[in-house]
Write a protein that binds this DNA or RNA. Structure first.
Lengths: 206, 206
DNA sequence: TTTACCATGTAAAATGTTACATGATTAG
DNA sequence: CTAATCATGTAACATTTTACATGGTAAA
């Protein structure tokens, strides 16, 4: 249950509403490794957490704009602390770009320019993310602790590292294709044969 | 539907069984950005893909060991190719270590040694992953294409980059705590007050 | 006055994991 | 002979997103 701890964590920064939490996740979440959270999981989860006594409604304006501000209870602070104590599990990253890189040669060989487009897109997105990051780390408005600052330095450095690598890959693809580094069982040759065979078989059917 | 394309991709390397695909994902998946896949999603998905005509059963040993080997059809190759064409979406990373770093100061301040343990654990896991990686990139058995090799170089370099940063963070935590980089609205002070307040209130209840 | 933003909520669908059931083969 | 590995499958559960419904407020 990951969303639960994001909610408790964001509320540890300051009391907030469901909508407000969503904004925080939107603004900080991607870079800080929280991923994304939708309203459809925030609101039911907040209700559940309140029911379980981890958070309580601090104020609710019933008239006009109906905003419920939640705050952590003692039980909630303890729950957050307990979670922070647990050793963090190694993350499962599912990155479509990396997936495509690993299947490119058998699934779509030759088309190097298309792959360059993918890499260029990723490079741009990474650049934007870095800008967004640099903005809120220097706008003087966000609270940045010692540890949070360390995390930020790491993440900014990593975005720069990634950008350099995307550029390096693009430069490599600009050059003519080279043969595989190693192919002991002739997998790549076989793959193109299997592909041809599959298409020739399907033509027989027509 | 992410699992679908992992299955098609792995089958593009070579015909394989459900069990065999699971092994490939286990062995290569984490590093190559595929994440993990369980049998509970592989077998039903393979049936579905066969029903939809993307793959077909190439051979099935009915007697004794019942192994079904799947192979891509022309439709399957096309589907893989179409997917590879689509611009890859920027990944949503949910990393518990990063999450904990961003909530540490309000949720569990003071306890720097515990955080150092977390970082040390991650450093070790990263090191192991790098070793595993270096092994199969030099064992002479795995097929490595030009693009796959490029991806590997990137991922190995990134693991080394991460390890260095974890070490840097540990060294920082060995030093005495410093005050926040910036805290314009006094958030960190307020947080510790709110925490104290929550606990004093819960004591009144007893 | 209309667009953008603030604000909460629910139901259905998608996607996936965990846990179980079953049984063959191989290596120590 | 027994543990590990090979091999397939299902049902229940968990988690989360998507899409919808509803309505207030502020700025252009």
């Amino acid at each position: 249950m990951s969303v639960k701890h994001i909610l408790l964590g964001v509320l540890s920064w300051a009391p907030n509403s469901g909508y407000g939490i969503k904004s925080e996740v939107e603004y900080y979440g991607r870079e800080l490794g929280w991923g994304r959270v939708s309203f459809g999981s925030i609101y039911p989860q907040l209700k559940k957490l309140e029911h379980q006594g981890f958070i309580k409604t601090e104020s609710a304006e019933e008239d006009g704009r109906k905003t419920k501000i939640y705050e952590l209870t003692a039980k909630g602070w303890r729950e957050l602390s307990n979670w922070l104590e647990q050793p963090p599990v190694f993350p499962e990253v599912r990155d479509e770009l990396l997936m495509k890189l690993s299947f490119w040669d058998t699934g779509k060989p030759e088309d190097r320019e298309l792959l360059m487009d993918h890499l260029e897109l990723r490079r741009k997105e990474t650049k934007q993310m870095l800008h967004h990051f640099e903005q809120w780390s220097t706008n003087g408005y966000s609270a940045i602790s010692e540890i949070g600052g360390l995390e930020m330095d790491y993440l900014k450095d990593r975005l720069r590292f990634d950008m350099e690598w995307y550029e390096r890959m693009i430069r490599q693809l600009e050059r003519p294709p080279t043969s595989p580094r190693q192919d002991p069982r002739g997998l790549f040759k076989k793959a193109s044969q299997r592909k041809k065979h599959a298409f020739s078989e399907s033509k027989d059917m027509t």
